[in-house]
Design a protein around this nucleic acid. Structure first.
Lengths: 204, 204
DNA sequence: GACAGGCACGAACGTTCGTGCTATTCTTGG
DNA sequence: CCAAGAATAGCACGAACGTTCGTGCCTGTC
């Protein structure tokens, strides 16, 4: 009950890296076994189905995400400083993995493929978005944002900017992606902290 | 030299739909042949390699994209009206395909896989982004936008919002995705058309 | 020293993949 | 209307896929 856990942890670390490149569905026991220096069957025995492997990889990634992105941001002051930290950590997370954020790679694979894997993926992403919205609410509470800002709208726009960064960086190979993302974040923060004078309203 | 073209066009229409769901790499001759009511080998003969099939599908998609998204927007007045039309047409395009925008589905597949397909994909996406930036420049020229706005930054942010819409709609199944996207677009347009009073600057 | 369990292995399964070849059928220009 | 050529089908291949099976290590317990 000792060795197995260690092996699984090792496997999932490698698997997460691979999945970020080829996607969760593109992940195969054969290639993964080769990368982990194991036999395909020996590796398979740890999970007993591809779906269970995918779930294990996602669970592993979720843990890493908390450790690398969320937790360190919680040490920052509530409001804009914490939001900045979240974005900075996420960019590091995206840049760190060989193929970018594994959740984004998996999302495309599974948006049309129902099942347990998709459900877990959905839950994880929703959690992240809710966390962004909550951070916006906190920012309003400490006076950094307009107190009547639409926090879910903020989460949508912030999340979109992250998607944009990943896309510019990965596919387009744009050197200015970081610069663009920073400028966009500044603009977004400015707008949400402005002295609310616009007549616009997010409903309808 | 007549029948073949018709058949290829039919195939590529179906293939584009399939690829939007399973990705360009997930597309297979077997399934595509079944869907098109042809034999695998008969279909294969039209393209003679998977890569050529993928390229053909992308070319087909590029044509459709011009017809459905770009051309109808060109009839609108330069500036904000045209930008609004572009976004509205793109949303229709995204909603219309079974699995969403085929270029986005393909992007994840190929961002780590060099080759002709990736190059073509890159070119097409870059074209689209450049077109967005050019539309922003036009908006500045007709007085809708600040004349000193950063048009490539605008393209980045607008493109990001589209990515966000696709993600919210496809994976998260968010009913409010359309509403969110509209609100975000309004905010973005407002910001770029404002009387430029901010001290902020996109460089650094 | 026999026994049990956890762990990993190699071989093989049925299926699907992309890709060739060889016929056969269909379309079309002279 | 017929020959030429294009379009499609049939069949086979080697490889990779997920999965199953039987077996052999180790390591610790009675």
């Amino acid at each position: 009950m000792e060795k197995g856990d260690k092996t699984r942890a090792d496997i999932e670390m490698i698997a997460m890296e691979m999945a970020s490149v080829v996607g969760l569905e593109g992940l195969s026991f054969g290639e993964l076994a080769a990368e982990a220096d194991m036999s395909k069957s020996g590796l398979f025995a740890h999970y007993r189905s591809k779906e269970k492997l995918q779930l294990a990889v996602l669970e592993h990634a979720r843990e890493r995400f908390h450790i690398e992105v969320i937790s360190p941001a919680l040490t920052k002051k509530r409001g804009i400083p914490r939001i900045r930290a979240l974005v900075a950590n996420w960019v590091k997370w995206e840049d760190g993995a060989a193929g970018g954020c594994v959740f984004l790679a998996a999302s495309i694979d599974f948006d049309d493929r129902p099942g347990m894997t998709r459900d877990y993926l959905w839950k994880t992403q929703q959690e992240w978005i809710d966390f962004l919205a909550r951070s916006s609410r906190l920012a309003a509470e400490v006076g950094d944002f307009n107190f009547n800002a639409d926090h879910e709208q903020f989460a949508y726009e912030l999340f979109s900017l992250m998607l944009g960064y990943a896309h510019y960086k990965r596919l387009l190979g744009d050197k200015k992606a970081g610069q663009r993302q920073k400028a966009a974040l500044e603009r977004l923060l400015t707008q949400y902290s402005r002295e609310t004078k616009e007549k616009d309203n997010a409903s309808q």
